[in-house]
Design a protein around this nucleic acid. Sequence first.
DNA 1: GGCTCCTTTTGCATCGTGATACAATGGAGC
DNA 2: GCTCCATTGTATCACGATGCAAAAGGAGCC
Lengths: 329, 329
Amino acid sequence: MTKQIKLEDVAAKAGVSKATVSRVINRRGYLSQKTIMKVEEAISALNYHPNVIAQQMHTQRTKQIGIIVPTVGTPFFGELAAELERRLFNKGYKVIIGGAENDPVKERKYLQQLLGRQVDGLIIATHNANIAEYQHANLPIVAIDRYLRDDIPVVYSDNYAGAREACQALLDRGATRVAYTDNLNPLNAQDEGRLQAYRAAMRAAGMPELIYPSLPDPEAKRARFAQLFAEHPEVDAVFASNDLDAALLLDLATQRGLRVPEDLQIIGYDGTKTTQTLLPGLATVVQPLAAMAERTVALLEDKINRKPTPAKVVLPVTLKPGRTLRQLA
Amino acid sequence: MTKQIKLEDVAAKAGVSKATVSRVINRRGYLSQKTIMKVEEAISALNYHPNVIAQQMHTQRTKQIGIIVPTVGTPFFGELAAELERRLFNKGYKVIIGGAENDPVKERKYLQQLLGRQVDGLIIATHNANIAEYQHANLPIVAIDRYLRDDIPVVYSDNYAGAREACQALLDRGATRVAYTDNLNPLNAQDEGRLQAYRAAMRAAGMPELIYPSLPDPEAKRARFAQLFAEHPEVDAVFASNDLDAALLLDLATQRGLRVPEDLQIIGYDGTKTTQTLLPGLATVVQPLAAMAERTVALLEDKINRKPTPAKVVLPVTLKPGRTLRQLA
DNA sequence: GGCTCCTTTTGCATCGTGATACAATGGAGC
DNA sequence: GCTCCATTGTATCACGATGCAAAAGGAGCC
């Protein structure tokens, strides 16, 4: 705003050299009590704050970590970002957050800029198109829920087991026709785990597969899900690959006069705090967000410190029953 | 990771001088097509990215904006952060996000570091204790929903009108005892608007005030809200100052066998996309998040460019009726 | 006084980019 | 041989904090 106070100004005010001020700030080397006091008085009198950019220039480190998520405006990624941010802050890092918004152009722009040593490391939690920049990125990276490159570790929860248990929970409670809704982006290897588990469960139960895409546009998605009920009135259970979709299905079902869980059982996926607060009755598969964040940050630190890291970390999920499931027979 | 490629390396590889490489990158001065090609080839061959820190050092700008929120793990602030981030990105800024977590110590730490010109501007959306650092901050700042200092513009939505309409909606539908729950932090001037409107409405209706605090700890809050029903069975309507509390009250009421809205009407506040997806039936007061973000970013840009800014911007809210309200008589 | 030893302070180079001034080269055109 | 202009190179500085080597100050000792 007005004038930028720098080290030199403090030095002049205190009547010492720049080096001495620096040494007072960082408590290094020999210092007389008298100079320490003089300098500290000058610092607070001028309201001096060291220029972080200059420090970064010198250390060649920014102590900043980039996090790329689809958006923080959604419970899963919002809570994930919050968990990551808290842990990174405790380790002295600040977080640059990028909402890729399922827009490969925006994601690419973020990467190109962040690759100029603006961050000491990167956490990628998007489900976008395979972006070339990742392949040549010369930077510590950890991915969440998505494979990027052989030497980039992936942290994810056990999607296959989670989906298997969700399907089993429905079948154990007498479901005869189970539909599945998912964001069927072929580039997300982990979500494939959920799809595969659903298919395997249907095969084992001798039931047909009923798969509906979860479209990005809210209106289109609502219309698509409405079709499900229209086309397949025999469906008496739905496994949604995320809780927001489960809530939408719940609303649609209620509007059509279906009773939940008597006529239709519903189970979601993710189990964030937000969903559990807003819809405490929803059955869901809870992803271990805190643990995922913990491991992600630990892996990133190892990468930064050039320690060896495992190729992947898989964490267990928990099934949370709820009022959208019938009582067990 | 390995070796840091710098301008000089590109120059050597392309067989030209540093100045020429700089000219090519920034398209300045006379340049032959041949050199442009040579240089660009070298750039991509070496996978060169300009060192952002050095650029920042030179321009004395970081093109980074700090956003301090309580947490992005909550629908309101998560969606707000997402709206802000998208607009800032479009203007060439990256976002450093800080979750203050209602912890004044953490908030203060963030400020002290960010004040070292690590960001070109700051957006404050916390409801924490009054932190001294704000008073001397020599940096463009815009606050959301909270007064900080005379020369820091505040953007907020019309809390008084929103609360007034919420209360009126309940009374119009035959409510005879209306309780109010809120995060009663005395430092949040705007929330006071909601409280005042509730009090005025009760006074006008000749009804007693029933005010319950929304505690930070989830378990404690649940217990506190349960008291509301135990202590005041005559309550037939609740106005919650946020949707998460409204959902909690809805759950508690259902568990106690109260029918909503027949026995108990509920209206919340905020009306985020997340709540409207998860609980589409909840009546609420919708805050204009997108407009708030838009105005905030515009004000911050004005501040950065030293243009005059208004002291405050108040935006209108919208009442969204729902199945937690009775039909109008 | 001259010497060593320790404390305290200072000057200077460094990090990578961008800006600026100025020189130098080469080719075209007359 | 001259001018004109496009093109590239060289050189230097600024940005602000840091860390090293060197210098300055003071005490003690012979």
